[in-house]
Design a protein around this nucleic acid. Sequence first.
DNA 1: CCAAAACCTGGGAGCGCTCCCAGACGTTCA
DNA 2: TGAACGTCTGGGAGCGCTCCCAGGTTTTGG
Lengths: 343, 343
Amino acid sequence: MTDAVEPPRARRPNTRLEEVARAAGVSKSTVSRVINGEPYVSSRAREAVHQAIVELGYSPNQAARTLAGSRANCIALVVSEQGSRVLNDPFFAGVLRGVHAELAGKRVQLVLMMSKEGDEQDLVNYLCGGHVDGVLVVSLHGQDPLPRTLADAGLPTVVCGRPLGAGGVPYVDSDNFNGAMEAARYLISRGHRKIATIAGPRDMAVGMDRLSGWKRALSQARLPEDLVAYGDYTPESGAAAMDELLTREPELDAVFVGADIMAMGALQSLHAHGKRVPQDVAVVGFDDLMIASTAVPPLTTIRQDVEQLGRTMTWRLMAELAGEENLPPFLLLPTSLVHRASA
Amino acid sequence: MTDAVEPPRARRPNTRLEEVARAAGVSKSTVSRVINGEPYVSSRAREAVHQAIVELGYSPNQAARTLAGSRANCIALVVSEQGSRVLNDPFFAGVLRGVHAELAGKRVQLVLMMSKEGDEQDLVNYLCGGHVDGVLVVSLHGQDPLPRTLADAGLPTVVCGRPLGAGGVPYVDSDNFNGAMEAARYLISRGHRKIATIAGPRDMAVGMDRLSGWKRALSQARLPEDLVAYGDYTPESGAAAMDELLTREPELDAVFVGADIMAMGALQSLHAHGKRVPQDVAVVGFDDLMIASTAVPPLTTIRQDVEQLGRTMTWRLMAELAGEENLPPFLLLPTSLVHRASA
DNA sequence: CCAAAACCTGGGAGCGCTCCCAGACGTTCA
DNA sequence: TGAACGTCTGGGAGCGCTCCCAGGTTTTGG
């Protein structure tokens, strides 16, 4: 019994364009025109084709379209990170919502991809292999080579958040610098003079930009800029940083925390040290997550519009795909101060 | 000035297989063999090809491979639901984690797709158009026509959770019936006699299966099965359902809640009514989410392994793609009772 | 020592589309 | 009247691969 057990490849019961053409009594070209919504088709032909498509249950072979037409009508949203982690991230959820919204009504599919560890090359191959027309990259860690790699391969790419290592790749980001500066200025305007900050990791642009904004505001007001501690976007790290700051300067009267999630920890720490917020220490966060409004006390924070971030990235990418020229190399979205009880 | 401003299509700086062949001094066929890891290639040729690939920065055109080879090395995970909602769902995150894990090391890409409203046809076209080899469907609402449509189109499909409207489409699910039965039996074994349940919506299989399991256990113990209220997988609905049950039967001494998320609401309601858990009313949940262990009191619940769900779906799909026969039409994964303080 | 088997290679058809081209019609307007 | 144009149509090359086939070279074994 030498019955070779081969995987039965080539399932091909699918109707092809040619059969539709035959059924409709027109040529392949005309069917193609109808499918792609081109002009110069008589309504008689158009209707015959539509009917044939329905009758035969035809759906065009995407691979063939992509190959012949050299565009895929498909863009990828790549999360350069262990995928499942990101799913509980409200930031990513917001961006995705924005991308989705911007794509509504356009005949462009969105595929979401995550790098599997050790699989980066496969990812790059897939993306560069003409399967997608362009890529949106959400890179959560700092120096990610992926945007550079994609851009070098000639694939239109837009990054979410200023990339550290990928100079020249177009990106969209919130105006973290000015947002942070506004936060610090607000604290200054309320009479605070010993103002600390809790910044994000040094290898992420978002952390550095917010720190720079804070510094600029303080230096312009001729206030000391040395009360800086670092966290890593967890409540625990925020609490630890706050502990450290209170040890270094027990008399501090305000703190700008570069992320709401860290501000939660800072609030805990302040409470543990018997400091009242905002009477003893004023706190301003950044992001305006859901938790900011439910915190005790409700958190004054800098709002960034993540959904708009997703929309803008998508717009920028689609514009490039449409051949528009002189597009801005990067875009910064405005932030706004949301006044609540903590400062 | 009739300078037609056409989108510059056909970006084609990409190296092609033929150029690699020329650079390596071999034929197209040999390059193809190397890329696909086939045997019968001399190590000399293999190395020359590998080097040429690196030097030229070649990545194969996926569309062409798919078209010529009639397989895409790519499967889709389709969420048949407004996408962004699902991102905060721990159930979905777990499934995705499982799918990812099962795919590790395989040269198969995963694309995640969500239906945009009014766009279902485009989705179906994309999926049926040969861009993917198979589909995993996570359908959150009950009667979803998508699995049927895909299966009818001849596309290997596996559904997550027993589909209501798609008889015959392979699915993987937790054994909700037996899990619920175990929960109810546990309550019975602890001496409870007035046992209520809060069930999920009637149009979702998961809700019905858990309700059936509860009913079976009660009927076998000759206990009344009329204390049923319904919720919709929100804490609020759980609280409302608990209120209703307490009004109908103030003396009830136990409740099986068909989802931890609703159990959170039920606990609130019981607390508001002055009932102590578990002394006055015992509570058993289902799912074993993170919140179950942090609830007050910690929730006794039926654990389902969502990550295993994702892995099993993927295994089932890949097996079908590999041409295996006599695969089971559906698979039920065992659940287990996690004993904590609430019952 | 020669047939059979295993190994390695190149040629080329063809996957199902898109898009260019050529041509067959009207219609319009000097 | 006929050039110029807009409208509609079909033919066919070719996108970049895979995979079948045919043929050459080496190893095996009786």
